[in-house]
């Protein structure tokens, strides 16, 4: 416990009392924010884990198909086939504000076909693999959204927790100690001056 470096005066006491009040208020607000963030985070993190497991399974299968297609056809053919894909993806992004954390919301817009090549020179595996890629794709976007949100929330949670702890275990006790110290000091000075007057009075009376 430390006593802040201030002069033990009535002025300083008033200032410190004001400071203590705002620190306590800030602490309460931050604590509420922390609770809110934690609630949101819990909702998201379980979802994120489930999504990731799902995506990893599906994507693995899609990749296997693709590699198989690649092994059946020469690389130039694969690339040539994919060169003229008319698929266009656009990603619209909105940001949502959750407890002052900016969370992205992705919205996928796709147009055009993925399979725009002749069937003659390409293998069926390529079609299948592209189809599976296309199926996984919306999931990937969702995963991106959720993971980014979780990350942003975790960052903010950590910061908030630090602030709450700094206020709770450092700033508020320090302020309280200092206020007590100044009050005691002022009381002591008051008693000192009363004794002084009493001594002076007694001396005057003794002379008279």
């Amino acid at each position: 416990m430390a006593i802040l470096n201030v002069n033990p005066t009535r002025m300083a006491l008033l200032g410190l009392k004001k400071k203590l009040k705002s620190a306590q208020r800030g602490h309460k607000l931050l604590k509420d924010k922390q609770d809110g963030l934690m609630q949101k985070f819990m909702e998201i993190i379980r979802e994120a884990r489930r999504m990731r497991e799902e995506v990893e399974g599906k994507l693995g299968a899609a990749f296997k198909n693709f590699i198989r297609a690649g092994s059946l056809m020469s690389e130039e053919f694969v690339e040539g086939a994919l060169l003229y894909s008319t698929a266009k993806t656009k990603l619209a992004v909105e940001t949502k504000n959750v407890m002052s954390v900016r969370i992205p919301k992705f919205k996928l817009e796709t147009e055009g076909d993925v399979i725009t090549y002749g069937y003659l020179q390409t293998s069926g595996e390529l079609d299948m693999s592209l189809q599976s890629f296309q199926d996984v794709f919306p999931l990937l976007i969702e995963l991106a959204e959720i993971e980014k949100s979780a990350e942003a929330l975790a960052d903010e949670l950590e910061k908030t927790r630090r602030r709450v702890n700094a206020l709770e275990y450092r700033m508020i006790p320090d302020l309280q100690d200092t206020i007590r110290f100044i009050q005691m000091k002022l009381g002591e000075m008051e008693r000192g001056s009363i004794i002084n007057t009493m001594v002076v009075k007694a001396k005057i009376e003794a002379q008279a």
């Binding site: 899609a62 990749f63 693709f66 590699i67 690649g70 690389e75 694969v78 690339e79 994919l82 894909s85 698929a87 266009k88 993806t89 796709t110 055009g112 993925v114 693999s129 592209l130 890629f133 296309q134 794709f137």
Partner: peptide
């Protein structure tokens, strides 16, 4: 190169 070629077709 060989892994991400497929994603190119999706517009990435």
């Amino acid at each position: 190169r060989e892994t991400i070629l497929g994603f190119k077709a999706l517009g990435l």
